[in-house]
Computed example of a mutant assay.
Amino acid sequence: MPKAIWNDEVIAESDDTVVLEGNVYFPRASLREDVLVESATHTVCPWKGKASYYTLQFDGHTTPDAVWYYPSPKPDAAAVRDRVAFWKDVKVEA
């Protein structure tokens, strides 16, 4: 089962993932709430839309903007609606 690991902690795990542009998108519901802090960061993808971010914070560790998601993806990117992806210090294992 695919899982996202940050600081030796599993922060998301699901058999229902979507791979898009080499990134594994997990269902938002599979992501642990206790490690998330809203971020003010936003970026724009020309075909997916506006991305929002979460910072990971837990047990004295912080990784800014390590989780991204598309709150209102464009129609061509509908597969990532209600999903999150990871980068920076997060390792995704299949």
Score class of each variant (00 low, 15 high):
residue 1 M to Q: 11
residue 1 M to A: 11
residue 2 P to N: 12
residue 2 P to S: 13
residue 2 P to R: 13
residue 4 A to F: 09
residue 4 A to I: 05
residue 5 I to R: 02
residue 5 I to P: 06
residue 5 I to L: 09
residue 6 W to P: 01
residue 6 W to T: 04
residue 7 N to P: 00
residue 7 N to L: 00
residue 9 E to L: 15
residue 9 E to K: 14
residue 10 V to I: 12
residue 11 I to F: 12
residue 11 I to V: 13
residue 12 A to W: 07
residue 12 A to P: 05
residue 12 A to H: 10
residue 13 E to C: 12
residue 13 E to N: 10
residue 13 E to L: 10
residue 14 S to N: 03
residue 15 D to H: 12
residue 15 D to K: 14
residue 15 D to S: 14
residue 16 D to T: 05
residue 16 D to W: 09
residue 18 V to P: 04
residue 18 V to Y: 10
residue 18 V to R: 09
residue 19 V to T: 15
residue 19 V to E: 14
residue 19 V to N: 09
residue 19 V to F: 09
residue 20 L to W: 13
residue 21 E to V: 12
residue 22 G to N: 05
residue 22 G to M: 03
residue 22 G to L: 08
residue 22 G to S: 02
residue 23 N to E: 14
residue 23 N to H: 14
residue 23 N to Y: 15
residue 23 N to R: 14
residue 25 Y to F: 15
residue 26 F to L: 01
residue 26 F to R: 07
residue 30 S to P: 04
residue 31 L to G: 08
residue 32 R to T: 04
residue 33 E to Y: 03
residue 33 E to I: 05
residue 34 D to G: 05
residue 34 D to V: 06
residue 36 L to M: 00
residue 37 V to C: 01
residue 37 V to S: 02
residue 38 E to Q: 06
residue 38 E to A: 09
residue 39 S to C: 03
residue 39 S to Q: 08
residue 40 A to P: 06
residue 40 A to W: 00
residue 40 A to M: 09
residue 41 T to D: 00
residue 43 T to V: 04
residue 45 C to D: 10
residue 45 C to G: 03
residue 47 W to S: 08
residue 48 K to F: 14
residue 48 K to A: 03
residue 49 G to S: 13
residue 49 G to P: 11
residue 50 K to R: 13
residue 52 S to N: 10
residue 52 S to G: 09
residue 52 S to R: 09
residue 53 Y to Q: 10
residue 54 Y to L: 02
residue 54 Y to C: 01
residue 55 T to M: 02
residue 55 T to W: 08
residue 56 L to M: 01
residue 56 L to Q: 03
residue 58 F to H: 15
residue 58 F to E: 00
residue 59 D to S: 11
residue 59 D to R: 07
residue 59 D to P: 05
residue 60 G to I: 08
residue 60 G to K: 11
residue 60 G to F: 13
residue 60 G to Q: 06
residue 60 G to W: 13
residue 61 H to Q: 11
residue 62 T to S: 07
residue 64 P to Y: 09
residue 64 P to D: 11
residue 64 P to I: 05
residue 65 D to V: 06
residue 65 D to L: 04
residue 66 A to G: 10
residue 67 V to I: 07
residue 67 V to T: 01
residue 67 V to H: 00
residue 67 V to C: 04
residue 68 W to D: 03
residue 69 Y to I: 06
residue 69 Y to S: 06
residue 70 Y to V: 06
residue 70 Y to K: 07
residue 71 P to M: 14
residue 71 P to N: 14
residue 72 S to M: 08
residue 72 S to K: 13
residue 73 P to Y: 09
residue 73 P to L: 11
residue 74 K to R: 12
residue 75 P to Y: 08
residue 75 P to T: 00
residue 75 P to S: 01
residue 76 D to T: 15
residue 77 A to Q: 11
residue 78 A to V: 12
residue 78 A to N: 01
residue 80 V to Y: 06
residue 80 V to T: 10
residue 81 R to Y: 12
residue 82 D to C: 05
residue 83 R to A: 00
residue 83 R to Y: 03
residue 83 R to L: 02
residue 83 R to H: 06
residue 84 V to W: 07
residue 85 A to V: 11
residue 85 A to L: 10
residue 85 A to H: 12
residue 86 F to K: 10
residue 87 W to P: 08
residue 87 W to F: 11
residue 88 K to M: 00
residue 89 D to C: 00
residue 89 D to M: 02
residue 89 D to G: 04
residue 90 V to Y: 15
residue 91 K to C: 00
residue 92 V to E: 02
residue 93 E to Y: 14
residue 93 E to P: 07
residue 93 E to M: 12
residue 94 A to P: 10
